[in-house]
Write a protein that binds this DNA or RNA. Structure first.
Lengths: 327, 327
DNA sequence: CGCGGGCCATACTAAAATGTAGGGCAACCA
DNA sequence: TGGTTGCCCTACATTTTAGTATGGCCCGCG
């Protein structure tokens, strides 16, 4: 009852699912509407069950169609990754590299490094996606990830770049108005800037240091960039990389001796992309640039397994607080 | 220079890559050889670079083609998963569920549980893949995984089923011939059965207990089933689940007081498959059956994040030995 | 209530892809 | 060395597929 359908039909199916109607999907795919109608009919025939119920305003997906959607999207992403791999396979100068990074990294640290990358490989097309959530590489959403924590997946090639130090800062005007806390215990009396719902950044930073709790914060945002902007605007006390804060004269360190935070910086790529010259070149330049930025010697190219051992040792040295730790 | 190619071309490309020639690929796909020749030519045109060099004995892939292969395979697996999802979306009685498990689990524990599953859902088509390597679910190589360690991926729905105890055993004839070790320190004097190159099983079992080293073993195999068979054949001392050893009267426990090993049992499925009735039904029955086998109450259905917290607590209670721990 | 705009389905025509058949080439084997 | 086999390429007939044009339907709006 289920012949395996032509992949083109799946692509059309996904387009119809997204667009909500045959006509709209046809416009996006630059095909004719009857063509898509036939594709859907053929796919329904192959699968032996209806995928859409014909409604006046368009097509309504059946539960089966909704269940199929993630797989169709996985195919689409794999196809996009294949295209990138094909472009840059031979020639590092001619390819597209998609990089994902955390917000702060992508906005504050990466641009000059990417400029250097582009200078060395002018033919490269660069894509930069900023998300604090991980898991992009495995979905082939990106070729290279700059992450502030150890990549967990076996299928990744990961390199530990170094360590970045953070501390608490506040605008000097804020401190002039409210004074400065004299101890960590006094912090709840001030306007602490922190996450809203997504604690992934905070828990990585605070690992083994502070018990992190949403109720501590009196100014909340899940965007690290927004947090930084709020900090610079004088709304309260928040965390920032020392390296970045040093270039912002209006910021003054707070509890510098008591609160010392740190993050690891990791570079990761999918092992499938090992054969892609463009990705390899970008990986190298990013490693160099980030290493220089961190002012630390970078470790040798190492596979995930070795990286794991390193992290393990590190984790034993600094046992964390159960409440703040979920990763 | 790079139009995004029709997905059918990618499928043909993968077939040619695997088969090594247009003709062979054509036979497998039940297409004519010139058709595949045209597909490859079209794909090369779309990508703007050659994928194969024409050789007398067939086609030799270029580096670019090799770099593209993993992505093409990812598409293929996603398509297969899509097909399974379509089949079983509505009706648990009519669907295919692909299960991956470790060798011992799949060969010794799962069969009766799968029999029960089939009894309850006679229309289900079951696929069972035995591999000790993980990472199958994310590649959509399987719908459900039975694993002896905590699944690490965020995109998975995981349920901790329970705990299985292991110990060292030997055939009574072996012990009659060689005697029994009186302490762990004496073990190297005996024929210990263990892994050859792949230490993934052993390091999970021995976590926090024994320093595991390949040189300890005097009988080596990477197949857990082979190890069990060697153990039953009297070749030496090896690890086995208490539950299984209890049904093998020829086996005698060794150093039962000194060496107590254990593994967690986890059930995991891809969150994308949540909408698949067949997979859900299989997940439920597997959870019940494994829970009954382990003789323990199963915990409530929980997402990965909660599972992580559980594991963290556990890891703190039993700190491991750095050398034996890489996961 | 009539009109326009969105949608899908159908019939027909045009284009494109597929299959078939035959030729040439290199490698292997008796 | 001569036959056989497997391979790829090209040319041509055929089937399949896509595009165009049209009609009917439902909804919202003036």
């Amino acid at each position: 009852m289920a012949r395996d359908p032509d992949w083109t039909l799946i692509r059309s199916f996904l387009a119809v699912l997204r667009a909500g109607s045959l006509s709209a999907a046809a416009r996006r795919l630059r095909l004719a509407q009857p063509t898509l109608g036939r594709h859907i009919a053929a796919l329904e025939g192959d699968l032996g069950q209806p995928l859409f119920t014909r409604a006046p305003a368009g097509l309504a997906p059946t539960p089966a169609a909704l269940a199929m959607r993630p797989m169709a999207e996985a195919m689409e992403q794999a196809a996009a990754a294949l295209l990138r791999a094909a472009e840059g396979a031979d020639d590092p100068a001619r390819g597209t590299v998609r990089i994902t990074a955390s917000e702060v990294m992508g906005a504050q640290v990466l641009p000059p490094i990417l400029a250097e990358l582009q200078r060395r490989h002018p033919g490269l097309v660069l894509e930069l996606a900023l998300e604090n959530r991980a898991g992009d590489l495995l979905r082939r959403d990106a070729d290279i990830a700059v992450r502030m924590f150890r990549p967990k997946q076996d299928a990744l090639l990961a390199r530990r770049i170094g360590h970045v130090g953070l501390g608490l800062y506040a605008h000097r005007d804020y401190l002039a108005r409210h004074g400065a806390p004299r101890s960590v215990a006094e912090l709840p009396l001030f306007h602490v800037i922190g996450f809203d719902r997504d604690d992934s950044s905070a828990r990585a930073v605070a690992e083994g240091t502070l018990p992190i709790d949403r109720t501590l914060f009196r100014v909340r945002s899940d965007s690290d960039l927004a947090q930084a902007a709020l900090l610079r605007a004088g709304l309260g006390i928040g965390a920032m990389q020392h390296r970045l804060a040093a270039e912002m004269p209006e910021l003054v360190p707070v509890l510098a001796a008591e609160v010392q935070l740190g993050l690891e910086v990791w570079l990761a790529m999918h092992e499938d992309q090992r054969g892609n010259a463009a990705v390899r070149a970008a990986f190298e330049v990013l490693g160099e640039g980030l290493g220089a930025f961190l002012g630390q010697k970078e470790s040798a190219f190492s596979e995930e397994k070795e990286a794991k051992r390193l992290l393990f040792v590190r984790a034993r040295r600094a046992p964390g607080l159960p409440g703040a730790l979920k990763s």
